[in-house]
């Protein structure tokens, strides 16, 4: 009985460890976007002036990030 409880708990734990996002490439080299974690600190060129910017530049206010394309 104890053993099966342990199995149950470990199963539950491993379920919670499943990434919350399935919207990303499954590759360990890709920084994960996970609820409760910092947004990946990658730098990208700004469309307006090419200045390299990370999402940390937008801290201080709640932010909605739209990942999109024009097509």
């Amino acid at each position: 009985m104890r053993v099966s409880a342990k199995v149950l708990i470990s199963t539950l734990l491993s379920c919670t460890l499943v990434p919350t996002v399935l919207a990303q490439t499954s590759d360990s080299r890709i920084p994960q976007i996970e609820v409760g974690e910092e947004f990946p600190g990658l730098f990208f060129p700004s469309m307006k002036d090419g200045k390299l910017t990370s999402m940390s530049a937008f801290r201080g206010k709640k932010t909605i990030v739209h990942v999109f394309a024009s097509w």
Binding site: A23, I33, E34, L42, V65, V67, F68
Partner: peptide, 18 residues
């Protein structure tokens, strides 16, 4: 960023946490 779908909307709090 490795996203495999668009559009995708992500809410980030004032501290930079998803």
């Amino acid at each position: 960023l490795g996203v495999n779908v668009v559009p995708l909307t992500i809410a980030v709090d004032e501290h930079g946490i998803v």
